[in-house]
């Protein structure tokens, strides 16, 4: 796994992409793995120690995958938080939050598209909350016509249908 530790400038730039949610600080060391995945490492190894380790061992994971840097259709860079990135930064998230009802929550965990009865006021990426408003349950994107919500739940976090 290719790893690149983000310097101060790159880290600042990345965090600025999350400002619309109210996020302005990430304490952990940020590491880019592959082309687009951003991971947060809270451990006590120095940058040099991490790189030394990487030179001698095949590293298959480091820290927590918190976000993905993606380029949209218009060539604009966007940041998509992972469900675990959302959990890490939950105390800072104040804007662009959508709360689902119970029925929608069930569909969400099956990774199905959510249809809104009324057009949503929100656009683009949103932090999704459970019907009881206790938990952030993932990151989603509202369609351009603001009538649907698409989720980015990884397979392992979806509710499985039991086959006996």
């Amino acid at each position: 796994m290719k790893i690149q530790i983000l310097d101060k400038t790159k880290k600042k730039k990345l965090i600025s992409g999350l400002e619309e949610f109210g996020i302005n600080k990430i304490q952990e060391l940020l590491i880019r793995t592959g082309k687009e995945r951003i991971r947060a490492y809270s451990g006590n190894l120095s940058k040099e120690e991490i790189m030394d380790l990487w030179r001698i061992l095949p590293i298959e994971g480091i820290g927590l995958y918190i976000a993905k840097e993606i380029i949209d259709k218009d060539g604009k860079k966007e940041i998509r938080l992972s469900i675990d990135g959302l959990h890490l930064l939950k105390d800072q998230i104040k804007n662009n939050i959508i709360t689902l009802n119970e029925k929608q929550e069930k569909e969400w965990f099956k990774s199905n598209k959510i249809d809104f009865e009324r057009q949503s006021k929100l656009k683009g990426f949103v932090a999704v909350k459970s019907s009881d408003e206790k938990d952030f349950i993932g990151f989603g994107k509202i369609s351009q016509d603001q009538k649907n919500l698409f989720g980015y739940l990884p397979k392992e976090r979806r509710r499985k249908t039991m086959v006996l």
Partner: peptide
């Protein structure tokens, strides 16, 4: 939510 781990394959 584990953040202090480095996973190696060897």
């Amino acid at each position: 939510g584990v953040m202090n781990t480095i996973v190696t394959r060897k």
